[in-house]
Every structure is written in C-alpha cells, then in structure tokens.
Design a protein around this nucleic acid. Structure first.
Lengths: 130, 130
DNA sequence: TTCGATAATAATAATAGTTACTGAAATTAT
DNA sequence: ATAATTTCAGTAACTATTATTATTATCGAA
C-alpha cells in the first residue's frame, strides 16, 4: 500500500465517528453507515477502522466486553463501562497522566501508552434500580 | 447450580494458575493442563476459568490482543503489554488506586473497579533491538 | 480525456476465540 | 449402595474479525 487513495466510504466512516459521542463497535458503525451506503461491506468497515486507528485518527478501545470500540476523540481521556447497560462513556475527570511516569520509575522497558477503564453502574442504571 | 461440587480439573487449573507468574490465555492454560489431564476439554478450561473469575478467585484481564488473559493474583496491581513480544507482565509500581476517587468526583454513577494497562516495549525487547 | 497502474470495494470464505449442548462419568447426600 | 445433581469430554454452534477474490474507483501521466 504505497499511495493511499481517497474513498467515500472511509471518509463517511470517519465523519460518522466524529459525529457521535458514544464509542460504537464495528457492528454499530456498520449499522449506521448502511443508512448512507446501503451495500457497504462489513469488511470495509473493519478495514477502515483499523486503518484510521493505525493512522492515529481514531482510537481503538478494549473494554473487555468481547468486541472493540472506536473513539474519534484522540485526546487523552478515560472511559467507564456500565456492567448494567454496557454503555461505554467518557469520564470527566482531572488529568492522571502522571501515572505513566509513576509506572516508568521501576520499569526497565519503554512505556509508550496506557489506558484506564473504570467499571461499575452508571448514573442512569443506578437511579432505575433504586 | 445450587451446590458447587469439587472437581480435580478445576482444582488443577487453579493450582496451575497460582504457580505461574505470567498471565496465560485460556489456550495456554489448556496446553499446560493437558500435561496432567491429557484429555481435558478446552470447554472445561473455559468454563472453570469463568467460574473462578466469577467467584473472585482469579482475575480476567483484557489487554486488547484478541484474547482474555487470566491472573491468579487478585491483589490490586497493574499490567504492561509489550507490543513487540506480546508478553503481559506485572508492573512493580507504587499504588495509584486514588484514581478511583478522582474518577468518582464528577461522576454520578458508582465506580466499583478499574484496570490500567500500559503498552510499550519491554526491557528484553528493548535491549535486543538496540 | 483517456489510459494504465493500483488501491479500495463488495461479497464471501475462512479463522480465532468462546459458549452451548449432550450423554456419560464423578461427586456428594441419603 | 443408591439417588440426585454437578461436572466432564466431545462436539457443534456462535460471534468477532481477518483474508481472498474479482470488480470498481481513484489518480497521475500521456
């Protein structure tokens, strides 16, 4: 893949991701993008999501629910997964990126990146169950 | 499943996990346990790993490499994944569990747990490549 | 503007990881 | 020992993801 060529599908996937504040799985992206390109292939969705992630334009999130989630917001922030409704949401919290240096202190390798996932019950599910 | 019954296989899986300091996948556990129980089923391994995780006796780790890893050390600690040799190792670092409270400050749900994964190049791979 | 090279696509097959099902064997209570 | 119930091995099924292939779209040059 020497020269990267433009594709409507990829552009559409990028724009769609940017427009949502949630963190859809490949399947959710596929369902959404089919409204614009009814016969886009799921393989195309996977390929372009991986490509965009490689290029650093989006982020791949592994929250441990069996499938990958994608996030167009590449600025450093952390996520919360509700064990009740399974939503993956952004956490509004003060910067804790210093943990990277904390981790590096007694480690002889190079730490390039990190991800923090919080788990529990979200506000909505909490109010429903009470 | 009212009364849980003893099983040699489950006990063997637990002991095996306790004896290793790495964080094997179900498949790695299967390969190892077959040395003792040559015709144990992969399904049995999965079922018991899930069961032990539910009981809180082991921890399931999602590091984003496509498969789950298992850790018999349930005390709070963090992990590092080498993007070179793909090893998942424990990080010896000072306690950062206060991030749980930091995250809770501006959040209306309940935060029950969290996991931190660090990524980069481990010491061994680093020395090899230089 | 057409042409030729090649990247990207849709459709589908294949793979990997995991879970579900079934009848037989093991474990515990009676 | 016998009955009741769990767990097992073996296997099929399922879900998420990647690979293959023939066709189509993009793009730079003639």
């Amino acid at each position: 893949m020497a020269v990267r060529k433009y594709s409507r599908q990829r552009e559409s996937i990028r724009e769609m991701l940017l427009s949502r504040k949630d963190h859809p799985t490949a399947d959710a992206v596929y369902a959404d993008i089919r409204k614009i390109y009814p016969n886009i292939s799921l393989g195309t969705v996977y390929r372009n999501l991986s490509l965009l992630a490689e290029l650093g334009e989006i982020k791949k999130l592994s929250v441990g629910d069996g499938s990958e989630h994608y996030d167009a917001d590449t600025t450093p922030h952390n996520h919360f997964t509700c064990r009740c409704c399974h939503a993956v949401i952004d956490l509004d919290m003060e910067d804790v990126s210093s943990i990277k240096e904390t981790a590096a202190k007694r480690f002889d390798g190079d730490i390039e990146d990190y991800s923090i996932n919080f788990y529990g019950v979200c506000g909505i599910c909490k109010s429903k169950s009470s």
